[in-house]
Design a protein around this nucleic acid. Sequence first.
DNA 1: AAAGAAACCGACCGGGGGGTCGGTTCAAAG
DNA 2: CTTTGAACCGACCCCCCGGTCGGTTTCTTT
Lengths: 209, 209
Amino acid sequence: MDKTLKRMATMQRMQVTGLELFYKKGYYNTSVDDILKELSLSKGAFYYHFESKEDFFIQIIENLLVRKMYSMLIEPIEGHENTIDLITNCFEEALETAVHNELDFGFVLSNFVNEFNGKNEKVMKHLNDILRIWEANLVSAIQRGKFNGYIDRHVDSEGVAVYLMSAYIGVRTLMVETAPSARKYRFMSQLRQYFKSLEPKPENAFNRD
Amino acid sequence: MDKTLKRMATMQRMQVTGLELFYKKGYYNTSVDDILKELSLSKGAFYYHFESKEDFFIQIIENLLVRKMYSMLIEPIEGHENTIDLITNCFEEALETAVHNELDFGFVLSNFVNEFNGKNEKVMKHLNDILRIWEANLVSAIQRGKFNGYIDRHVDSEGVAVYLMSAYIGVRTLMVETAPSARKYRFMSQLRQYFKSLEPKPENAFNRD
DNA sequence: AAAGAAACCGACCGGGGGGTCGGTTCAAAG
DNA sequence: CTTTGAACCGACCCCCCGGTCGGTTTCTTT
């Protein structure tokens, strides 16, 4: 059907532009009209496709944010190669897009968490879901790393996961204004230093689970 | 003068309540009337004491935020004792107030950075000033640590500072919703692990980047 | 007690935002 | 060509918010 195609296309356009503006100016500071003006569409079109601004935003989360998080921060660390390298490269690349001021979805997420925390429970539920997925995937990557001998068996997988997420979210906050490129470089150096402390200790003889 | 005293008291009350609400609900989501209702004061009283909502907020930054940042995150690490212990304890205490959902000013700061970034240059200037002060103090604490033999000489002081700020800001974002106490515990464990990797190496060659 | 000033009140204004709804366009089906 | 309904338009409603301003209360001074 041509009509359903058009419908999908319009909704997609609205969501892409919506995410962009919500990210740049914040959800509450972006009016529906702002988005519509960008697309030369009208209020009627918007409320024909979406129930409300909130519903619109939740669909953006489910359709765009979740998928991008997967492709940028989850899938890249799923292989069986050296876990530490995988995570390092993954962060490196994600932060590089941040340096160029493009949409970095890990940060988009934490940005929204900040904006909605304590203000909109419904939206927060969806955002927390993504955070949990990210965390779970980091944890299993680390456990895989232990199993494959890239990470010391005594490290606390969940601890490392929380720590990595913290560091990533934090450095993105710091990169927003001052010397993003320099901060990225320094951050990555320290991250590597931290990762070294997770490597298997030599005195621990070769052992399998 | 009784009058000037009263003036100060009223302004102080407004600022304290203002900071609380701005933190809880966000700056743009908190109306001046919200604050006034909490205090049973009127618009007239507010605009008698402050030029505008923005001016009000900047005064809150200068009067409350800056001072609290100093007492919570800067002064505690200024001594000549073991730098690593000082920073660890400082973070430990700051995060503990966060667990109890009290105002944790390091996080208040990063929250506002998120909210104002790209939206209000004037306010951002003030917020960035505080970030810079925090960073500068961390850097000099680390350099002091090197001088006093608590930290390896080859460590990049500014790198560590950026990394610590990142980690702190990030974990606070993660603590807002899910299991704050558990996350704090895990975070602190990993932080200690990281700090171990900064301790002076005996005479072993240290691999530098 | 009177006067003057500081502190405070609250109705009002203008603009903007979310959401509604009757009307219009246009492409596909009969 | 006519019909039909999905897609879209845009004027309108109502509420809220930042800010104003003339008036009132409260304190200080003499």
